[in-house]
Design a protein around this nucleic acid. Structure first.
Lengths: 200, 200
DNA sequence: CCGCATCCGGGGCGATACTG
DNA sequence: CAGTATCGCCCCGGATGCGG
């Protein structure tokens, strides 16, 4: 049911963004043929994994959303993502395509606020074609696409290096050596990274 | 790396049985074309997921085994299996093929000994083409193919019903209604099933 | 624009046959 | 036992068209 080409990637797009338009999915899945996207969506709908709904009046369009049964695939994407994490650090080929929002799901899985009692922080991540914002909201970590109003720290660079730094696989000096730039207080990252010692 | 057709199924076979011969894999993957099996094994080897080794002298043959990196795919198979578990209870089409040992991995994942202080028990499961044996060994649950010497309880029937009973999705009466036969003390199952109240 | 349907090569795939 | 060789098919990728 979910083993065909593209199928789990479509599910991932919907896990990331909630309800998506057809063209949103096309944007998020560079290289997919439009007939395949239509086919897969139809199959997923028949199998009760995806539901299609009419968008609210102002914009008349169709939205695709995961059903509860579809949401249950989150652990599958999590396990696959965890297994593939080491590959994320490898350099990307020159013709590689990358979408910033692909980082949303792994960041949601792995970041946590280790010092919820401290004042909230905001991190802006500039990699790929659009910025990402990470902010702490009373103990939770929220990640979204878009720029931050007043980030405490901004990270820019190539996706593999940025990801390596955020996930704690690369230390700050190594990451800077490999070409990223950090604006603001890098110590904030320690509060969010996995396996980081809790800030005392 | 693991998204091609058959690839994760090959990994599953190796997770179940440890080192496997080429023909063992063919048996466990009914329907796979021999050229595809060879292709996949070669790709998996190149990617460091599978290693091939020469068997010890008496039998001169090649064995395929997961590398540590390959073993790390266990959580992926676990997540996929958990998601697919409800489908396991649906009736099989008449032409369906089923291999008993496919139950080994889910049983390893979901069964536990909730009363390790009691004397060990043995369950024999007869479904598919060969029997399975479940036994408790000081707190652990061991599952293997083959018949048991002196089982405390024996379960026979169609795979969906047997699986439903073992995983606690079907209660005993329903399972018997749906055609399984139970020899011995069915209460033993409560000690092993997931979410079962611990035996006092 | 948005959500497809259609058409058209190329290659992955499935079945069978064959072999050191 | 562990593959290789071959052939046909259908899935897939890419491009274009098209009604709402």
């Amino acid at each position: 049911m979910v083993g065909d080409r593209w199928t789990l990637l479509i599910v991932r797009e919907l896990l990331i963004g909630g309800a998506c338009r057809y063209t949103d999915l096309q944007q998020g899945l560079p290289g997919i043929a439009t007939n395949l996207l239509a086919d897969r969506l139809r199959q997923l709908e028949e199998q009760g994994i995806v539901a299609r709904e009419a968008a609210p009046p102002p914009v008349a369009t169709t939205l695709f959303r995961l059903t509860p049964r579809g949401e249950e695939l989150r652990p599958v994407l999590r396990a696959l993502g965890q297994w593939g994490a080491p590959l994320l650090l490898e350099e990307l080929p020159d013709d590689a395509v990358f979408r910033s929002h692909w980082l949303l799901l792994p960041l949601q899985f792995h970041l946590a606020d280790h010092a919820p009692e401290r004042p909230p922080v905001t991190v802006e991540v500039r990699t790929g074609e659009e910025p990402l914002t990470i902010e702490t909201v009373d103990g939770d970590v929220r990640i979204r696409t878009g720029a931050a109003a007043a980030p405490d720290v901004t990270i820019s660079g190539e996706p593999p290096v940025v990801a390596g730094l955020l996930f704690g696989k690369l230390d700050l000096d190594t990451a800077i050596d490999r070409g990223i730039t950090v604006d603001g207080d890098p110590a904030i990252l320690l509060r969010l990274q996995p396996n980081a010692a809790p800030v005392p």
